[in-house]
């Protein structure tokens, strides 16, 4: 979550931007001058990942979904390429299916966004950081998959209300597939736990973009800008 000091730093970055004339790079990975201690220091630079602009809430949410699908696809791609030795029979087939679904989601969203895709001008795609996960054991892989799939479900449930009809329809088609994934993965993590998290209300989780950004930040090597992402 973001405290006031973080917001203050964000504002600071934006004002630096205008001075530096770098605002044109609105939907790209950009450099923003900002010292860790909030003291201007031209010798220290941090990067920020910008996925949202002032122009279109639909595009902002689709880019947010695209980032989530990139993350999931990269995760499964890495696991399928180097699977843990103690996977049970049949589990590599599950992981391969999951990877392919996420790759298709990612590529479709990239297509749907066209030139509005946040990494359109990137020289190389964003590289995700999975160093906080244990991917050398079956248990570690399924626990990580459970985390990512449930983030995806909660993100789509929370973001639906920000989309106009054509894009809401699209995301709905993906959201239920993520829920199908999450259920299988939970059962593989711990038999009998497939419904953990639903609770007595009978409702799945719904998270705001800011809540989700905080959850996925550990996997992204630069801070994700929350500017222009909905706060509800």
């Amino acid at each position: 979550m973001h405290d006031n000091s973080f917001l203050a730093r964000t504002l600071h970055r934006r004002s630096f931007f205008r001075v530096a004339g770098a605002g044109a790079a609105a939907s790209a990975l950009v450099l923003a001058g900002c010292a860790k201690d909030d003291t201007p220091n031209p010798g220290t630079f941090t990067q920020q990942l910008v996925i949202a602009t002032k122009d279109s809430l639909d595009n902002n949410i689709l880019n947010y979904a695209y980032l989530l699908e990139q993350l999931e696809a990269a995760f499964y791609d890495k696991v399928v390429a180097t699977p843990p030795a103690d996977l049970l029979p049949g589990e590599l087939a599950y992981l391969t299916d999951l990877r392919d679904h996420e790759l298709i989601h990612r590529e479709y969203l990239k297509y749907a966004l066209g030139t509005n895709v946040y990494d359109n001008s990137f020289v190389t795609p964003l590289t995700f950081d999975f160093s906080s996960l244990t991917l050398t054991t079956r248990a570690g892989v399924w626990a990580a998959a459970q985390l990512l799939e449930n983030i995806g479900v909660a993100a789509y449930n929370g973001a639906g209300k920000h989309l106009t009809a054509p894009f809401l329809k699209l995301l709905g088609k993906i959201a239920s597939v993520e829920a199908r994934h999450a259920t299988l993965v939970q059962e593989l993590v711990q038999p009998g736990s497939w419904a953990t998290g639903i609770g007595t209300t009978g409702l799945d989780a719904a998270k705001t973009p800011l809540e989700v950004v905080a959850l996925i930040q550990p996997f992204i090597p630069v801070p994700i800008s929350t500017d222009f992402l909905p706060t509800t």
Binding site: N157, G172, S176, V177, A179, W194, A206
Partner: peptide
């Protein structure tokens, strides 16, 4: 509605 939708999918 979306929160119910994903529960039905589960």
């Amino acid at each position: 509605a979306l929160q119910i939708h994903s529960v039905e999918a589960r």
